[in-house]
């Protein structure tokens, strides 16, 4: 109880004012795309923007929030919806770490470009950050037990979870995944997860921090649901006018985020400070 209360006090989420990521030598820098695999022209346009952003912000890997390949998942489909649009990044050796969306076949977990190691759910560590990648399309007992054990054993300074379905959302189309949240969020609280990312909703949204956890939705890397964010108490910031992706830097006890639109505009930015007691 004391720990939770402290988290509430110390988690500071500031946004609006320009925030300059330090680009420190030992920081963890990555990008986030969600619902990317349509193969449409706009996916390519955003992918170009994502690649060019790396010139200014040298991220070293990319998280994929699911719906990686819509529809045709033949080799031709993989090429059109992943290998070609992100070729500059793949050629530069930037790895992508995917989660499965409800439009994804499960055998994507074997695909070399998604670095899932053959698993529906998995964990990996980059610097001070341990990532917990969930398959939210099928949260069975085995996965819950894995998540509990993996979080319990984690000694990482930062714990970041992601999956396709958002636990909190102001989307008119889908909204919050309450069922999922009721089962999983208690584990996040218990083990001190700092930030959670999701897709599924075809827009960007920053949620008002919940239970000391920063929640983000980044599901507009190729599909857009315009004017879909409700003005409700969950909504700290949102962008549903165009496609977008996120850039993240985690340095020491601070997570810096910036959201870039297809036209290159910064549509949200800020920082999340990690509670000192975690």
């Amino acid at each position: 109880m004391h720990r939770l209360a402290l988290s509430w006090l110390l988690l500071v989420l500031s946004a609006g004012a320009p925030v300059t990521p330090p680009r420190a030598d030992d920081s963890v820098r990555f990008a986030i795309i969600g619902d990317s695999g349509s193969g449409a022209k706009v996916q390519y346009e955003l992918a170009e923007r994502l690649a060019s952003a790396r010139q200014l912000f040298p991220y070293t890997f990319v998280l994929m929030m699911g719906d990686n390949i819509y529809g045709d998942d033949s080799p031709k489909g993989f090429a059109k919806k992943f290998e070609i649009p992100y070729k500059p990044l793949l050629d530069a050796g930037v790895p992508f770490y995917a989660t499965l969306g409800n439009h994804d076949a499960q055998d994507q977990r074997f695909y070399k470009g998604f670095n899932m190691g053959g698993h529906r759910y998995y964990t990996f560590t980059q610097g001070s950050v341990q990532f917990f990648v969930m398959d939210t399309t099928y949260m069975d007992r085995g996965q819950l037990e894995w998540l509990d054990q993996s979080l319990r054993e984690s000694r990482a300074r930062w714990k970041v979870a992601y999956g396709h379905h958002p636990f909190y959302s102001s989307g008119k189309k889908h909204g919050s995944e309450v069922d999922l949240r009721q089962l999983v969020e208690p584990l996040f609280i218990k083990y001190g997860v700092n930030a959670v990312f999701a897709g599924h909703e075809h827009f960007y949204q920053r949620i008002v921090p919940q239970n000391g956890i920063a929640y983000f939705i980044s599901g507009a890397a190729s599909k857009l649901r315009r004017r879909n964010i409700k003005d409700d108490p969950l909504n700290a910031a949102g962008f549903d006018d165009d496609l977008s992706f996120m850039l993240i830097e985690i340095a020491a006890d601070t997570l810096y985020f910036e959201v870039i639109s297809r036209t290159g505009a910064t549509v949200d930015q800020g920082r999340v400070d990690r509670p000192a007691d975690h």
Partner: peptide
């Protein structure tokens, strides 16, 4: 192929 895999609500799945 073109249809999403609808999520079984986790509490029902349990």
């Amino acid at each position: 192929r073109d249809l999403p895999r609808a999520t079984i609500p986790p509490r029902l799945l349990a």
